[in-house]
């Protein structure tokens, strides 16, 4: 699966896109959804929840197991993807688009720059697999 070039990645396999208004959109990578398999349930965070970086704030459940989704940077949750309540499979079919999970207002938007570029993430994910 092609990774859009404007994304950043956390080591825990979330992707992050910085929007024009300074918020960030977060989802899980194509690699992560593939490893998890068919998703059957996504628990999105509460809006206005203030979280630390690397705090588990959402859960995705596949047929096999439940996995935490971590906030890639510190900040406040501003929106969640309501479509996932009825269609968790969007995370499998379109992880970088319709399958986004939540949006945040980061405390410090520059913190996003410390995350991995798509190329670095790609090799990181491949190494982790082998």
């Amino acid at each position: 699966m092609d990774i859009p070039g404007d994304l950043k990645f956390a080591p825990s396999h979330e992707w992050v896109r910085v929007e024009d208004d300074g918020t960030i959109t977060v989802g899980i990578s194509g690699h992560a959804q593939q490893q998890l398999g068919d998703l059957v349930f996504v628990e999105t965070p509460e809006i206005d929840h203030e979280c630390d970086a690397e705090e588990g704030i959402a859960v995705v459940e596949s047929v096999k197991a439940a996995s935490d989704i971590y906030a890639p940077v510190a900040g406040k949750v501003t929106d969640t993807n309501g479509a996932l309540a009825d269609s968790p499979e969007l995370v499998n079919s379109d992880p970088y688009g319709e399958g986004w999970i939540f949006k945040m207002q980061p405390e410090d938007v520059d913190a996003v720059q410390n995350l991995m570029d798509p190329d670095d993430y790609q090799s990181y994910a491949e190494n982790e697999e082998s």
Binding site: F41, E43, E61, A66, A85
Partner: peptide, 9 residues
Amino acid sequence: TLEGQGVLR
């Protein structure tokens, strides 16, 4: 059968 959301494990 779970009434709410999530998965019985």
